[in-house]
Design a protein around this nucleic acid. Structure first.
Lengths: 205, 205
DNA sequence: TTGACAACTGTACTTTTGTTCAATAGTCAA
DNA sequence: TTGACTATTGAACAAAAGTACAGTTGTCAA
C-alpha cells in the first residue's frame, strides 16, 4: 500500500510519521501530473481556512488505483459530506492520533468510506446497535466447536493455502494437516476445503 | 430464502406475487410469537396513516435469521431513516414494481441496507457517480479475457462446485470442465480452484 | 478458402486432497 | 488413576484435481 501525502507546504507531521512511516509527502504542484501508476491512498491536507474547491484542481480525483482521503485541519460533518460528494473516500482530522489514521487507511484501502463517528450517528441514528446485533449472527464465527489448532488450519485453508503450505507454516507434517482437516470437515459438515473456505469467508451463495 | 409478508389485513398484492411468488402473507397477530427458526426476509407493510410505532410492538426486531424491510404505502426519506433506526434493513414503496422488490430482496438478503435513491442522493450527494466509477475496478469482473463458457465454469467453481457437478450442470464431460479450468488458470494466473474462488468472491487476504 | 479461435472430448499421467487403520504422547477433569 | 480430548504422525489407499498430447467440430472474419 502506497501512501502519498499532499500538502501546500510539504512537511511530515509526527502523527503521520507514526501512522504511515513509508508515506511520501509532496506539494500540490507535484501531484498535478502523476503517471497514475500503482495503488494506494492519497492523503490530501486541507489547512485552516482552505476550502475543498481550493485544492480540487490539483486532484485528478480518479487516479487509477489511488483513493483519496481529506486531512482537514478543521473537520466537520459538512466538509466530510462534501469530500464524499467529490469522490473522496473519507475525511478526518489532520492531527488525528496515529491509531486513528491507521484505522482510516485500513478501511479505505479495503474500499470502505471513512465518515467519522458523529456523522455516522447522525445519518444512521441509533441503528448502530441494531446493526451490531445483526452483524453478530452473520459474522458469527463459522468455526464453532473447533479446537485452537483446527481453527488455525481452517483459517489458512480459507485463505487459500495448500496442505503443504499449512504444514510448513505451522511446522507440522502434512499428514497432520490432513488429520485436522478431516476433523474439521467432520465437525463443520463442509464437504471439502473449498466449501470450508466459502463458509469462513462468509460468501453468500 | 424465506419471505414473510406481514400485513394488517393479509392479502397478496399482484406485485408482491410477481416478485416473491413463494412468500407467505400473515397478519400481525400471527407473527408475535414465531419460533424464530429459519432465515429470510420479513416484509412489514405500513398502511397509509399508520406509523412505525403502530406495528413495532408486533415485531421482535431481532428474529434470528430474519431481516426486516418496511413496505410503506406512503414512503418518505424520514420514514426510511426511522426504519433503519429501529433495526430494519430498509424501506420501500408498497406498490413498487416486482423488479424493484426483487432487487431489494437481493440486497437485503446479502446484508445490505435498502435506502432508496432519493435518500441516498441526499445523504451522499452526488458521490454516486464517483462511487460507481470506483466500484467498477474494485468489483471489476475478475474474469477479464475469459470466454463466455469459461466464465460460467469459473463462477460455478467460485460457488464451490466440483468438476463433476459443473459437468452435470452444463451438460458437458468432466474432461471438458478440466480443459476450461486449465485455460482459466492459465489466463488468470490462479493456482487452483480455491485461489480462483477467492479472487472471484473478492476475498481480501 | 484459409486461419484463428471457441467448444468439446478421449487417453493417460502426475499431483493434491481426503480417508482408513493404527499408534504415541500430553492435558485435564471426574 | 482413568477416561476423554487434543495434537501428532506413519503407511496405504481412494478420489479429485489438474496437466500433457491429440483430435473433431463449428463459427467468423480476412
Amino acid at each position: 500500500m502506497n501512501h502519498l501525502i499532499v500538502d501546500r507546504e510539504p512537511r511530515m507531521l509526527p502523527n503521520w510519521r507514526d501512522a504511515l512511516p513509508a508515506a511520501a509527502v509532496v506539494s500540490r504542484r507535484e501531484t498535478v501530473g502523476g503517471d497514475g501508476s500503482g495503488v494506494g491512498i492519497r492523503w490530501c491536507r486541507l489547512r485552516t481556512g482552505e476550502k475543498l474547491a481550493d485544492v480540487l484542481p490539483h486532484l485528478p480525483v480518479i487516479l487509477s488505483g489511488y483513493r483519496t482521503v481529506i486531512l482537514a485541519d478543521e473537520p466537520s460533518d459538512a466538509l466530510t459530506l462534501e469530500s464524499l460528494s467529490v469522490g473522496a473516500s473519507g475525511c478526518c482530522n489532520t492531527h488525528a492520533a496515529p491509531e486513528v489514521l491507521k484505522q482510516v487507511a485500513l478501511v479505505v484501502a479495503n474500499g470502505g468510506l471513512w465518515v467519522g463517528q458523529s456523522l455516522l450517528q447522525q445519518v444512521i441514528g441509533n441503528t448502530s446497535r441494531a446493526l451490531a446485533q445483526r452483524a453478530k449472527p452473520a459474522v458469527d464465527d463459522p468455526l464453532p466447536g473447533l479446537s485452537e489448532r483446527e481453527q488455525q488450519v481452517a483459517r489458512l485453508v480459507a485463505a487459500g493455502a495448500s496442505n503443504k503450505e499449512i504444514a510448513d507454516r505451522l511446522k507440522i507434517a502434512e499428514r497432520t494437516v490432513k488429520a485436522h482437516l478431516t476433523a474439521i470437515f467432520e465437525k463443520t459438515g463442509a464437504r471439502d476445503r473449498l466449501q470450508l473456505s466459502l463458509r469462513i469467508n462468509g460468501v453468500k451463495l
